[in-house]
Simulated assay, not measured.
Amino acid sequence: MDDVTVVVASRNRRDQLLRYLPRHEVPVILVDNASEDGTADAVSEAMPHVHVVRAHTNMGAAARNAGAELAATPYVAFADDDSYWEAGSLGKAATLLDVHPHVALLAAQVLVGADGRGDPISAAMKAAPLGSPPDLPGPAVLGFLGCAAVVRRDAFLAVGGFNPTLHVYGEEALLAMDLAAAGWGLAYVPALTVRHLPLPTGRDIEGRRRRQARNDLLTAWLRRPLPIGAAAARAAWRAGGPDRAGLGDAARLLPWALRNRRLLPDHVEASVRMLAGAHA
Rank of each mutant, 00 (worst) to 15 (best):
F78R: 05
G88K: 13
I121R: 15
A158R: 08
E25I: 05
G60R: 00
V43N: 09
L130I: 00
P129W: 06
G138K: 06
L97R: 07
L96M: 12
P134R: 06
G113Q: 07
A104R: 03
P101G: 07
M125H: 08
A87Y: 10
A63D: 05
A55N: 07
E69H: 14
G160D: 10
G160E: 11
A61D: 15
V99Q: 15
F78C: 04
A71F: 01
I29L: 04
V150R: 03
L106T: 00
V28P: 04
L136P: 04
V53D: 07
L90Q: 10
G138R: 01
A79E: 02
H24N: 14
Q109W: 09
T95P: 01
A123M: 09
D115C: 02
L130A: 01
V53I: 15
A87L: 12
A63V: 07
L145G: 11
S44D: 13
S89M: 11
L142Q: 10
L157N: 04
R54W: 13
E36W: 07
N33A: 13
F78N: 05
I29P: 00
V103T: 11
L136H: 03
D41R: 13
L111R: 13
A149F: 03
A128L: 08
E69V: 14
G118Y: 11
L157V: 03
A108C: 11
D115F: 06
D32N: 08
G91N: 07
S44N: 03
V26L: 13
F144S: 07
M59R: 11
T39N: 13
P129G: 08
P129S: 10
D81G: 12
A40M: 02
M47R: 13
D80L: 12
L106V: 04
A93K: 13
P74A: 04
A104Y: 05
G143T: 14
Y84T: 03
N65M: 09
A123P: 00
P139G: 00
A66E: 08
C147A: 09
H56E: 15
A71W: 02
S89N: 10
S132L: 09
T39P: 05
V159T: 08
D119T: 00
E25V: 03
R23M: 15
D80W: 12
N65C: 12
F144V: 04
A104K: 03
T57E: 15
D119N: 14
P133F: 06
A40V: 06
E25H: 09
H24S: 10
D154Y: 02
A66F: 03
E69I: 04
V52C: 12
Q109P: 02
L30R: 00
H51R: 15
L106R: 02
A158I: 07
H49L: 05
G118S: 14
H56T: 15
F156D: 00
F78M: 12
A127M: 00
N65S: 05
D37I: 08
S89G: 10
A114F: 09
E86R: 15
D82W: 14
H24P: 11
G113A: 07
P48F: 12
R23T: 08
A77R: 02
P27A: 11
L97G: 06
S132Y: 10
A77G: 05
G131M: 06
A68H: 14
H102K: 12
A77K: 00
